[in-house]
């Protein structure tokens, strides 16, 4: 009886080890390739373990001058997308959370269904329009395009944030003679601030990673994901790995810092990272 228990325990831990290996090995390989000596990985028998480091690829990446413009563009676009998404979606989400149940669900479902549309189908007329408006290759154009995906996403998260704020709080403020706008700005938003911050950071990440709209709306400029794609097409074996690592670092940090905030209603808004 005891040995049977031991065996089932053994299988349990074996399963856990398999799961962990499955989840971590691809990340390890990415890191490994970005620091690899060419002979170790560019053969038909690549080595698994890191025996020596090589910083040459990284030096090339930093020196080539191909890094800073996309990095800057990605950063600016992600930041402005985040700020604008907050400004547009936060008041709206507050309002949605204060509606009757029925209206609230109708709006939430509508937000959900806009997520269903294929983004290539939206990107096509958007890029035709933006060409007319001279917004191709501009940061503004890309921010506007990223907002298309990020607004429903952030609104979905924020509605559930505002729902947790008791309405009594506002009633107390209105008895004290505060107007509704004043109540929102001075009472509700400060209480909701942590939730707003978390949602904002996820929005930033989504925009930082975004590829489809960037591909449609860029002719000569590049965001960081486009730069990676460019090296994939050209077969830049080490550049792919190095640029991918750069793109990944902020995502990894923010995701793990915010780990405990990732709840299932956030996932409903579809965090992909």
């Amino acid at each position: 009886m005891k040995s049977r228990k031991f065996i089932s325990k053994l299988f349990f831990y074996l399963g856990i080890i398999l799961i962990v290996l499955f989840m971590t090995i691809p990340v390890y390989i990415l890191f490994r390739v970005s620091f690899a000596v060419p002979e170790d990985v560019l053969t038909s028998h690549p080595k698994f373990l890191i025996t020596r480091f090589e910083f040459k690829h990284w030096e090339q990446v930093f020196r080539s001058g191909n890094l800073w413009p996309p990095l800057y563009k990605s950063f600016i676009v992600a930041t402005f997308t985040m700020v604008l998404a907050l400004i547009i979606a936060a008041p709206a989400s507050y309002a949605i959370s204060r509606f009757d149940r029925k209206i609230k669900y109708a709006i939430i479902l509508t937000l959900f269904f806009t997520r269903m549309f294929p983004n290539v189908g939206i990107a096509l007329p958007i890029s035709v329009t933006f060409l007319k408006w001279n917004l191709m290759d501009t940061n503004l154009g890309l921010v506007m395009a990223h907002l298309i995906e990020q607004l429903p996403f952030i609104a979905w998260i924020l509605v559930s944030t505002f729902e947790t704020i008791p309405i009594d709080l506002e009633e107390a403020a209105s008895i004290d003679g505060a107007g509704r706008l004043r109540t929102l700005l001075k009472i509700v938003l400060p209480v909701a601030a942590p939730g707003l911050a978390v949602a904002a950071m996820f929005t930033w990440l989504n925009s930082w990673n975004e590829f489809t709209y960037a591909l449609y709306l860029s002719l000569t400029t590049k965001t960081l994901p486009l730069q990676i794609y460019y090296y994939v097409l050209r077969g830049g074996f080490f550049q792919q790995a190095a640029y991918s690592t750069i793109l990944t670092i902020p995502v990894l940090i923010i995701t793990f810092a915010l780990q405990r905030y990732i709840r299932s209603d956030y996932l409903g808004g579809a965090i992909k990272g």
Partner: peptide, 22 residues
């Protein structure tokens, strides 16, 4: 283990494609 299972979440989709290329 839970944190490690969440690891792919911290990897952009594009990058996961690149990694699986390797």
């Amino acid at each position: 283990v839970r944190s490690l299972v969440l690891l792919p979440m911290g990897v952009p989709t594009l990058v996961s494609g690149v990694t699986l290329l390797y």
